[in-house]
Structures are given as C-alpha cells and as structure tokens.
Nucleic acid binder design. Structure first.
Length: 294
DNA sequence: CTGCAGGGGTAAA
DNA sequence: TTTACCCCTGCA
C-alpha cells in the first residue's frame, strides 16, 4: 500500500510499486517531459509545471500540495490501477511479452488532455520524436500561457484552441510544422467555430469515439488510436505503427500488411488491454532498435 | 561537403 | 492501392 506525506513544500509518495519515471516518460506516450539535472523529470501538464524525483519506490512531487496530488496527479498517473496484475497477465502469454513487460517495468499510461493529445499526435505523423517534442515546445512558447520561471527556465502551457486559432496556417509553417500546418489550423478552426469541448467525447464508447475522431483532418487510424489511449484512457484501443507492425507480425507470424488481422489477433488475446500491451512492445522494440526483415 | 533515405501516417487520387 | 508530403537528422 502506498504512503503519502508532505515534506516541506513537497509531496512524497512512498512504496509506490510499478512506477518508473524514465519508463513512463520515455515510452513514447507523451512529449512534454524531460530529464532534469538532478536525475528526475519535469514537465507541463494542464498548465502546471511539475518536477519529480525518484529514489527507488519513493517519488517526490516537488512543490505540490496533497490536494493537487489527489485531484490532478493521482488520475494523471493512473495510480489506482493495479499494473502488477496486468503485467502478470500480459507476460504470461508469450516469452516476448514477458521480456517486454520486464524491460518496461514501471510504465503507466498517463491520462492526458484530449485536445493536447490530438494536436500532439497530428504533429507526430511521419515524424520523429525529437522533432515532435521540439515542435510542440515551439507551439507552447508561441501561443501558450507563460507559467513563469521554474528551475531556471520559462515554461509555457499548451495553447488552448482559442489561443492556437491566433496562428495562421503560414504561422504554423514558419514554426516548422510543414504540411501538418494545414491540419492543425483546420482542426483548431473547426473546434473553435463549433465550440467543441473534446472532454465531452469521453461519453462515447470506443468505436463511436474513433468514428468521431477520424472526422478531423490529419487524424487517421493510428493517430485516432493514440488519442483514444492517451487522451481518453481507452486501453482497448491499439495503435498500429511501423514498429508494432514489424514486431508483432514477425514475432507472432502474422501478415505485416494486414492491420485488421493484427488488431483482431491482439484484441482476442488481450481483451481491453491491447493499448497497454502495445506500450510495452513499442518501448521494448524501439529501445532495442530491433532489426526486422522487410 | 553534397545527396539522400527515413521518421510512432494521412489525404487525395 | 499507391503517392506526395514539410522538415530535420544521420550517414554514405
């Protein structure tokens, strides 16, 4: 059972199992967290800056109140879920998954803001992670709220739709968004004009949600899945990306060109948990720079 | 130093 | 089903 207490201005979580900063933030689900000089991680979530430090199973939430911990960070870090039980279930299925789960111990699926998740993953299309992170940071700097200086740097919140609509397509191109500028502008405009609050999409079941998300320009099957997992906590959603396509088809002897077969295979075996399986596999595959035949 | 493939895909034909 | 696509980085 985890213990929570205050220590000065900090909030300290002790004996927290299945929680590892590096694996949580490097597994590819988020783009605004970075390592700090003290070995921790810092990032901006919901217009708040947070600096975390981990020593074993003790995690320090710097400058955080108990109330903020409970209201914001507890759901964000998915602390109510029993990851150990899920890992056992996943690992039990195949030696590869056993390795992947062991390697990515401490991964947690973050509950991120749907709006930020949507724009972030539109940017992620046919792009690499360092550049994705850089572009999102530029967006925040140019159009988000200044959160003041934290740990020696000025930080910025992710821009709201009303803030981002200030950017023309050309502005976004000038930031380096490339052909994604059109998608971002189009989506933002649609959301602002129709006064859409993406949080309300939570009410739909996963198939309906997917259908709605696919209506946005720049949101295809892969990006929609990412928004569903990371923005709406739908673990029954499974993004098929280039890594997963290669790895899963090779290891489980499936046709790499048949995403439907691949999804069906995983859906049958890991009902409602495919998203988590994908996260372990993706992280494992990417970090090992696995060479897969074409 | 130049050239070029490739990156957590998507829209359009 | 196939192709072009912004831009940046790494590597011949």
């Amino acid at each position: 059972m985890m213990k929570l207490q205050t220590q000065g201005r900090d909030c300290v979580l002790e004996t927290q199992h299945d929680f590892n900063l590096k694996h949580i933030f490097e597994c590819g689900q988020c783009f605004r967290w970075n390592p700090t000089k003290d070995g921790g991680y810092a990032g901006v979530v919901n217009g708040r800056y947070l600096h975390l430090v981990q020593e074993g199973e003790k995690i320090t939430f710097k400058k955080t109140t108990i109330d903020d911990f409970n209201n914001i960070w507890r759901p964000y870090f998915d602390l109510e879920r029993d990851y150990n039980a899920l890992k056992l279930r996943i690992a039990d299925y195949h030696p590869i998954l056993s390795e992947a789960v062991e390697f990515g111990y401490g991964i947690r699926l973050l509950k991120q803001e749907p709006w930020e998740t949507m724009i972030s993953f539109i940017i992620s299309a046919n792009n690499n992670i360092p550049r994705i992170k850089m572009l999102i940071e530029k967006l925040a700097e140019a159009y988000g709220n200044s959160l003041g200086e934290h740990d020696g740097e000025r930080r910025y919140g992710f821009p709201s739709p009303d803030q981002l609509i200030q950017a023309t397509e050309q502005d976004l191109r000038d930031l380096g968004m490339g052909y994604r500028a059109k998608y971002i502008h189009n989506v933002t405009q649609y959301i602002v004009e129709n006064r859409i609050d993406l949080e309300t999409y939570q009410q739909w079941d996963t198939p309906t949600l997917e259908k709605q998300l696919l209506k946005f320009k720049g949101v295809g099957p892969k990006v929609a899945s990412c928004i569903m997992i990371f923005g709406y906590g739908r673990l029954d959603s499974f993004p098929v990306d280039t890594w997963i396509r290669k790895v899963v088809s090779e290891w489980f002897e499936l046709n790499p060109n048949d995403d439907k077969q691949l999804k069906a295979y995983l859906d049958e075996r890991f009902q409602k948990l495919e998203g988590l399986v994908q996260q372990y596999l993706f992280y494992y595959a990417r970090e090992h720079k696995l060479e897969i035949r074409k």
